[in-house]
Nucleic acid binder design. Structure first.
Lengths: 248, 248
DNA sequence: GACTTTCAAATAATCGACAAAAATGAATTA
DNA sequence: TAATTCATTTTTGTCGATTATTTGAAAGTC
């Protein structure tokens, strides 16, 4: 069937109205739920009722349910058979365990990374730091702590994560990087918790990141590790105050 | 409305016909799929078609789909939006990364555990070892390598896992223990792969476990760590031969 | 002959409704 | 008052069917 003339090959077909970036609803729900839990929009320990979430995110039960199942394995949500999902609760004991583990695992990752990292890696770290300083962070959390619904991961948050990942990116093991990112996510929840309440404790923390970069470019492994651990410990202390001893 | 006589409070009510252990279909599917992937019944890299799995496990799409979503976050299955699920494939590079990470992370865990562990912990290790030797393992894999469908995790496999967990159980961080278990699962896939093909390479490995226990009760940290790393390396070598360089 | 385009079959994703279990709360009893 | 029972209601878990997307093969074009 001959089509008329020489329709000039629709370059890419401009996919009409692309709802999302080609992602599925379930993936979108996963991302948004993940953000909302990490950013403490959904409060730790609270129940995650499926129908509520359906109206909140404007989709059916199936995608929500799939997203929740993924979150369970991230440790962000908990599931009890026949009793449903809830936001994994935070506690001092949990934080304690988390911080210790972060120190242990990240020390290895950073040491290996500094051992193997070439100049390209080093430049990646410097670049990531630059981006971190350019983006003000806390873009999502207004002074009053109010957050506009529907706000996604601020670029500042992403820059922070990217910086920490860049540090260990040359460790030579994707597995190790993955573990560190899991730990980072978990820690982020505590960071946001601390920020939400005491907003005047705002960071003289740009400094800490600078110290890290300095140690890295100086190739002083021990100093870098020490600074990193100190960094973790500060986050720990900030969040600690907001928590009771008993989980929930 | 008076009920007759003094019905002696139905002790626990004997729940008629409990299909499963009170678990949901989704949880059952999750467990079975997990086993089947770890035990290499489902071959690495192959597609996981939902309908196939429905007939295989005798349930609807919903529970299967939920189970698959959980597996994704375990790293056992992979999901590409709109293209569905598949069994995460194995490769030399992946194994390499995994083994390195196991050595690093388990070293920390074991060191800490031996530092903190009291005699109760020590007894736990000895007990776990005893159970390991009592259960022949490979109960699920017949000499011919054939596996009866529907077979669940053999008690031998469980004993092996329990032994390794007992070693690090006193490390003082649930997070770290969890990470080690993730790594253990991933490694188990390679172990089964190796076993499936070369069944005569069967273990003089009870020995390695014995050496571990000896080092632990002797409280010789460095020796224990060395043995553990060697143990990991051997698994690595066994599986390595079965793999091509290119993943899939 | 190699490369598109088209179309049909297969598969994935989502919806809406139903069934099963747990939480809620008022009425009853000790 | 405190505890127990039972019916009501909410919420979870599952199914079947519908819609959207990809895959693969046949037809067409340069």
């Amino acid at each position: 069937m001959p089509k008329q003339a020489a329709r000039p090959k629709p370059v890419i077909a401009e996919p009409a109205v692309v709802k999302n970036g080609g992602a599925t609803l379930a993936s979108e729900a996963y991302q948004r739920l993940r953000e909302d839990i990490i950013n403490a929009v959904l409060v730790p320990g609270s129940k995650l009722r499926v129908q509520e979430l359906c109206t909140r995110y404007g989709m059916g039960q199936s995608p929500i349910r799939e997203a929740l199942n993924r979150l369970v394995r991230d440790g962000l949500a908990s599931l009890s058979d026949h009793k449903g999902f809830s936001v994994t609760s935070l506690s001092r004991a949990h934080l304690e365990s988390l911080t210790k583990t972060r120190c242990w695992v990240n020390e290895i990752a950073l040491r290996e990374s500094m051992l193997n990292g070439d100049s390209a890696w080093e430049e990646g770290v410097v670049l990531a730091y630059h981006r971190l300083t350019r983006n003000p962070r806390r873009a999502s959390a207004q002074p009053g702590g109010v957050r506009v619904d529907g706000t996604y991961n601020s670029s500042g948050e992403q820059a922070h994560r990217a910086f920490h990942t860049s540090l260990i990116s040359a460790c030579g093991s994707p597995w190790l990087i993955d573990l560190c990112e899991q730990l980072f996510d978990a820690a982020d929840r505590y960071r946001h918790l601390a920020r939400a309440t005491s907003s005047r404790t705002a960071r003289p923390r740009g400094d800490e990141h600078k110290l890290l970069v300095d140690a890295v470019v100086a190739r002083d492994v021990d100093r870098a590790v020490a600074v990193l651990k100190k960094h973790f410990s500060r986050t720990h202390e900030l969040a600690r105050g907001q928590l009771s001893d008993d989980p929930a």
